[in-house]
């Protein structure tokens, strides 16, 4: 049951027995909970309900998190304590600085561009006849894995050398050729390649921004819009004075949510360039240092850095939520 299953029937059998085991655990919890009644029993039942969750979170999240932070102060093999040296490397080594620079590009560009496109699109299609179909088209990339999105866009960026009969098979290079240019090695030219990878993330996240913002736009009271219409306000003023202020708290949430997601982006970089040609980002570098370069200490420091970078974004998010609730 705890061995590696290699044939399909074995795999299905293992899955079913795992589910059965889980059902049995749940059954025992509910059975014991059912024996307790009244206000005093409440405590016992509550802790019983929380027991499996607390166990998993402690062993699977809290302990590993603390352990990684601890490991980030040790050398490549994880034996000798070296203080903040790994962090020193991240902020001084030329390769690591490129990684940091790329991460800044990602985290600044993706949220703002994706949110802007999502907002504009949500306004454009609001109350139109094909609204739900139009939304599905933009939203669909959200359901695709980053890996598949990477493959889709790698095909868009495909390059064929500029020789006699060779035809381009990637759409972007074909467009360049149609407009009289020469084909470019899009995924190799740095820093262009980083921006082209960012496009993929924007392509995925715009749908998320659009969905959330569309709901916020629909929540603007009709009488405000109607009053503005009666005043003869034009489309731009309507957007500046009414739509934007009304959805502003939601915009902040969308920006920060996409920002956090972008910070941890890994799959796109790995699938499209493998982090080569100066395209690596912190999350990809973490994987490379830990598993390919066998530098556990530096890997742990990069993971910890991700954690530290998320905190201010979340803090800002919570603070602005509090403010909007207070007003």
């Amino acid at each position: 049951m705890f061995n590696t299953a290699s044939t399909t029937p074995e795999k299905i059998l293992q899955m079913l027995s795992a589910l059965l085991l889980f059902a049995a655990v749940m059954g025992i919890i509910l059975f014991i909970a059912g024996r307790f009644g009244g206000k005093k029993g409440d405590r016992v039942v509550a802790y019983l309900y929380l027991l499996p969750v607390l166990l998993l979170l402690t062993v699977g999240l809290v302990y590993p998190g603390l352990r990684t932070i601890y490991q980030s102060f040790f050398d490549a093999a994880g034996d000798a304590f070296i203080g903040f040296d790994n962090y020193g490397t991240i902020f001084s080594d030329p390769d690591q600085l490129t990684v940091l620079r790329n991460t800044v590009f990602w985290v600044v560009l993706t949220p703002f561009v994706a949110t802007a496109i999502g907002l504009v699109y949500a306004i454009l299609i609001d109350k139109s006849r094909f609204e739900s179909f139009a939304k599905t088209l933009i939203f669909l990339p959200m359901s695709i894995s980053f890996v598949a999105a990477g493959v889709i866009w790698k095909f868009m960026y495909e390059y064929r050398p500029d020789q006699g009969n060779v035809k381009q098979i990637g759409l972007i290079n074909q467009l360049i050729v149609w407009f009289g240019g020469k084909p470019v090695q899009l995924l190799i030219e740095s820093p262009l390649n980083s921006f082209l990878l960012i496009v993929v993330m924007i392509w995925i996240q715009a749908g998320f921004a659009m969905t959330i913002l569309s709901a916020a736009i629909k929540a603007i009271p009709d009488d405000i819009i109607e009053a503005a219409r009666l005043d003869g306000v034009n489309a731009w003023t309507m957007f500046r004075r009414i739509t934007l202020p009304s959805v502003q708290p939601t915009v902040v949430v969308v920006l920060t949510t996409i920002g956090i997601g972008t910070l941890k982006v890994f799959d796109i970089v790995r699938t499209m360039t493998g982090g080569n040609f100066n395209t690596s980002v912190v999350a990809n570098e973490f994987y490379r240092q830990t598993f390919n370069a066998d530098n556990q200490g530096l890997g742990a420091a990069l993971a910890t850095l991700l954690f530290v970078l998320v905190i201010p974004i979340v803090w800002y998010n919570i603070r602005s939520l509090r403010q909007s609730e207070a007003s």
Partner: peptide, 15 residues
């Protein structure tokens, strides 16, 4: 538990 939402997976993987 609410705060644990922000822990990036990367931090937990090796341990």
């Amino acid at each position: 538990i609410f705060a644990l939402q922000i822990v990036p997976l990367q931090v937990t993987l090796i341990p």
